[in-house]
Design a protein around this nucleic acid. Structure first.
Lengths: 197, 197
DNA sequence: ACCACCATGTAACAGGTTACATGATTAA
DNA sequence: TTAATCATGTAACCTGTTACATGGTGGT
């Protein structure tokens, strides 16, 4: 779809983006993801240690080994000027429109292939997940407000998006639960489900 | 994350789901995706012809070759009982909560790495994409209503979700455009952007 | 003559996940 | 002594994308 492939893979981009916050080790990066953007995007641990040396190879980062007292030796990575400009280009790159390859929506669309009870479970689970997300974001927001530090627009807008998304999903789930409950089977649905098990 | 991997890959599941609608060729399947769930999930054409024979190999489908007049020979696939039960299990399988690996949100979160103008472009593009999706769904809905045929709850709920999503994104985009426009650079943002190019 | 559509496939590659392996330090 | 945290890596595997290759039919 995007003609020529991107200069940076998603993992490379995200890693460089966090690395732009200062020199750190692979382990540090993993932690930052956990307690930061992780909810929205996070690299597999194994992958991380494969990608980091590649960033150095391509000139987007430099590395140096340090030994702190008797602690295990670690490698610190620092983004380069070249890395920063590749990173800016990566951020600028247009993003594919959503919804794209959304498993929830595919399975929802084919809901007639299983029982009402199963589909109601999916819907309730969605609502619960969304409610949890909403709570998490509200908590983050409280912490950010309380910290007194000036907050960036972008993290704020990211939380805001998450919050609006969560509310929308909760509203939809309630409608959906009702709609599925009262729905009569579609013609053909019985046939599709007939041999389920 | 999901412990043991699924019996069916996403492509296998989606393919079987469409195949549950009747015996058809790989080409037919591709077309159905285009004019159906495709907006939400669609296999790469190349992949399709790799997966189909595998479905047969594993007993989820059977195939037979047909020649219609002088047309090129084609292979028709039909789902089996075993395929139907695997499919039902696939649909029932719990779905990972969203947002998950959302490129838009990662790039948004790291918006300080580029210029306001770039981020405003992302936001406007999002709003336009959402507006287009909304229009497409409204059109689909009109067609479905006009057709007179009884419509399934699930396709309806899928459209409904898409519509609510699109509206939410449009509202968010308007807020975001305003917020980015008036925002002052975050402390540190200038440094991050300094060497952009 | 050319284009759109019908119809199927292969090979190379990219990107990512999982499980496994190793080993030190520090706090309870 | 046990568990959590620090710290890094490898190998096998899965899934999917892209580009390429082939060739007939039907309409303008």
């Amino acid at each position: 779809m995007a003609g020529h492939r991107a200069e940076l893979s998603p993992t490379e981009g995200a890693l460089l983006a966090v690395l732009a916050g200062g020199e750190q080790s692979g382990y540090d990066l993993a932690r930052r993801f956990e307690r930061g953007v992780g909810r929205v995007w996070s690299p597999a641990k194994g992958h991380l240690y494969v990608v980091l040396p590649r960033l150095v190879e391509r000139g987007w980062a430099t590395s140096r080994e340090v030994v702190e007292g008797k602690r295990p030796q670690k490698t610190l990575y620092r983004i380069t000027r070249k890395g920063r400009s590749a990173l800016a280009r990566w951020v600028d790159e247009p993003i594919e429109p959503e919804p794209d390859r959304n498993m929830f929506l595919v399975k929802l669309f084919f809901g007639d292939l299983t029982s009402k009870e199963s589909m109601l479970e999916h819907v309730r689970r969605r609502r619960d997940d969304a409610a949890e997300l909403r709570a998490q974001i509200e908590e983050m927001q409280r912490l950010a407000d309380a910290s007194g530090e000036p907050q960036g627009v972008y993290p704020w807008l990211t939380r805001r998006y998450g919050l609006m998304w969560a509310r929308m999903v909760i509203r939809w789930s309630e409608e959906a639960e009702e709609a599925i409950s009262v729905a009569r089977a579609t013609p053909g649905a019985r046939f599709l489900r007939r041999t389920k098990n």
